[in-house]
Design a protein around this nucleic acid. Sequence first.
DNA 1: ATAATCTTTCACTACATACTGAAAGTATAA
DNA 2: TTATACTTTCAGTATGTAGTGAAAGATTAT
Lengths: 168, 168
Amino acid sequence: MDFEASKEKFIQTWGVLGGSWGINRTMAQIHALLLVSHVALSAEDIMEQLQISRGNANQNIRDLIDWGLVFREFKTGERKEFFTAEKDIWAVAKQIVKERRKREIEPVRKILSELKNTKTNKESDAQKHFVKMIGNIEDVVGKMDNSVEKLIKLDESAIVGTLFKIFK
Amino acid sequence: MDFEASKEKFIQTWGVLGGSWGINRTMAQIHALLLVSHVALSAEDIMEQLQISRGNANQNIRDLIDWGLVFREFKTGERKEFFTAEKDIWAVAKQIVKERRKREIEPVRKILSELKNTKTNKESDAQKHFVKMIGNIEDVVGKMDNSVEKLIKLDESAIVGTLFKIFK
DNA sequence: ATAATCTTTCACTACATACTGAAAGTATAA
DNA sequence: TTATACTTTCAGTATGTAGTGAAAGATTAT
């Protein structure tokens, strides 16, 4: 496989993976393109290389910036913006986990905690079971969430060290 | 909030969460309904309680069985099938991770490894950068995948113990 | 055999989400 | 201040995924 074909394949693969990780396909493709590019690219460059519209490029670049995965750059003498990707893959993974925790886990924990206030009939098997299940789920989700919270606070070398220690 | 309202809310919440975890909404709702039900339910029960069609119920129940999250049950004297959910939440989490690893991570690792065979021009900065990036990504993805693999081999008490040890 | 009960399939439809491109908005240069 | 270079917005459109319901398939009872 030659360079161009490999690059193309990588972009497509990263796109598919992103799709199943809460990052949409185009967003992940732009990120992939920037990851393997050794220089910053403009919106035009991205539109051309990925064959996407201006609106699409603009929206997804801004989403990537929101997620903390892409940064704006300016070149002296150039009017337009250029973009580069976060290239530390651990940082990328951490960032994604962090965002998803905020967007998904936190609201669920909030609701689970509300559900504990359900007025129940202590005589009903169905209701006793419900209360027990909600308790279990809250407990497990809470433990996972706490671990994740601590994990994303570690820096790269600490993550690798921690994973190594646990799973040696 | 009364019992019925709480149950409804839990099903909806679990459905939304599932949607962002590679499990579709209805699938997650059926799972939620079975989780909080203290008795096994039939397809009819599920259709009625979630207000969904027969085809939809059937398809998603079978997907849940494929994922190892729901089990078939038979009652003597009853012709139809009944269904129960895996109620150990750690087992549920492990099962989801296991499936997604198989469906998503493995194919990506395969492609990354292929991409290392890219014929490159050693003079080109762009190509040198590409090779380095692919190497980094493969390395990080590999380390994460290995950790995940080991995690899903642990049983419940070991998972809790491990998480506790790491993140105390 | 055939009737009754239940499960599975599948062509069609509905719905949510992503993408387009032209127009409006903004900032710098002449 | 007008022109130029760029960025953002948004209404309309396309696309993919999920859901429907009727019909076909299977299994057990009569």
